[in-house]
C-alpha cells in the first residue's frame, strides 16, 4: 500500500490502532454506568489543556493529560457528594473546558488557531514520534489498570451496594473509571479529535450490543468494530483528504447500522419464541 510509505501515515495508523482497542474497552463500562456522554465532557476539558499548552509553549499531549485527569477527579469528587450538584457541575466544567480551550488558543496567537482544528477533529499529519510514545504508554497504563480493576468496576456498575458487600471501594472505582476515560480521550485526540473521541468509545459498544448476550462478548465485538472503524476511517480520510475524526466516526455509525439491521430480524424471532410457550417452563430442569 502506497500510504504506508509515508512516515506520518504509519504513525497515524499506530495511533488509530491504539484508540480503536482502548476506547471501546472503556466505553463498555461507561455505557453500563449510563455515562455515555462523560467522554464528551472529558474531551472538552482536555481541549482546555491543549489551549494552555499553546499558551505556555508546553507539549500538548501531556498537558491535555493533566487537564483531563484533574477534571476527572473534580467531577468525581462533586458527584460523590450530590447527584444533582454533580450533573450541574459536570455541565459547568465542560463549558469551561471548551471555552478555555478556544480562549487560550486564540490568546496564544500565531498558527495556534489552525492547529486547534487538528485537535478538534483529528489530523493525519501531526502525530509526532514523541506523541506516539506518550500514546503508547498511556494506552498500556489504561489496559493494565483495566486488567486489574475491570472486574471490580463491573460489579460496581452492576450494583454499588452489592459491590460494597464484596469489599469493593465503590467511590474509588468510580473515580478510577472517570480518570481512565480522561486518559482514553487523550489517546484519541490526535487521530479522532477531542470533539468526536467520545464516539469511538460509545458507538462500537452500541453496535456490538445489537448482536451480543454477554458483557465480555460486547466488549470484544466492540473492540473489533472500534478497530475497523479507526484504521479504515483513517485510510478513507487519507484518500478523501478529509480530517480523520469524522470519517472514523461515520464508519463506526455505518457499522452500527449494519449490526442493528442484522439484529432486527433475530430479535423479532426471539420475541416470537419467547412469547409462545409459558415463560417459566424453560427455567425448570
Amino acid at each position: 500500500m502506497s500510504l504506508l510509505s509515508y512516515d506520518f501515515m504509519q504513525r497515524a495508523l499506530i495511533a488509530a490502532a491504539l484508540i480503536g482497542v482502548v476506547a471501546p474497552l472503556i466505553g463498555v463500562f461507561l455505557v453500563q454506568r449510563r455515562l455515555a456522554l462523560l467522554g464528551d465532557g472529558m474531551g472538552h476539558v482536555a481541549l482546555c489543556g491543549v489551549g494552555i499548552a499553546f499558551l505556555v509553549g508546553a507539549a500538548p499531549v501531556p498537558t491535555a493529560l493533566v487537564a483531563a485527569g484533574v477534571g476527572a477527579v473534580v467531577i468525581e469528587v462533586i458527584r460523590a457528594r450530590s447527584r444533582t450538584a454533580g450533573d450541574l457541575a459536570l455541565a459547568l466544567i465542560f463549558y469551561g473546558g471548551i471555552a478555555g480551550g478556544v480562549l487560550f488558543t486564540s490568546l496564544a496567537g500565531g498558527k495556534s488557531s489552525a492547529a486547534l482544528n487538528q485537535y478538534l477533529f483529528g489530523s493525519l499529519s501531526t502525530v509526532a514520534a514523541s506523541d506516539l510514545v506518550w500514546l503508547g504508554v498511556v494506552a498500556l497504563v489504561v489496559l493494565g489498570v483495566l486488567a486489574i480493576f475491570g472486574r471490580e468496576i463491573f460489579v460496581m456498575a452492576l450494583d454499588p451496594d452489592v459491590a460494597r458487600t464484596q469489599g469493593i471501594r465503590t467511590t474509588g472505582m468510580s473515580m478510577l473509571l472517570t480518570v481512565l476515560a480522561a486518559m482514553t480521550v487523550v489517546i484519541g485526540m490526535r487521530t479522532v479529535g477531542l470533539l468526536l473521541v467520545s464516539a469511538i468509545m460509545i458507538v462500537p459498544i452500541a453496535a456490538a450490543q445489537q448482536l451480543t448476550r454477554g458483557f465480555r462478548t460486547t466488549a470484544v465485538v466492540g473492540v473489533v468494530v472500534g478497530e475497523i472503524s479507526a484504521v479504515l476511517g483513517l485510510v478513507v480520510s487519507f484518500y478523501l483528504d478529509v480530517p480523520p475524526g469524522p470519517s472514523i466516526v461515520f464508519l463506526s455509525l455505518a457499522l452500527f447500522a449494519v449490526c442493528a439491521a442484522i439484529a432486527l430480524p433475530l430479535r423479532r424471532r426471539h420475541n416470537r419464541l419467547a412469547a409462545s410457550p409459558a415463560p417459566h417452563s424453560s427455567a425448570r430442569s
Binding site: Q32, E152, Q166, Q209
Partner: peptide, 21 residues
C-alpha cells in the same frame, strides 16, 4: 445498558480486592 449474561452476574460474586490479581 450493556448486555450481560446470567453466568457473568453469578461469576461476579467472587470479584473483589482479594481476587484482584
Amino acid at each position: 445498558a450493556v448486555p450481560m449474561s446470567v453466568r457473568e452476574v453469578v461469576a461476579s460474586a467472587r470479584w473483589g480486592p482479594a481476587s484482584r490479581f
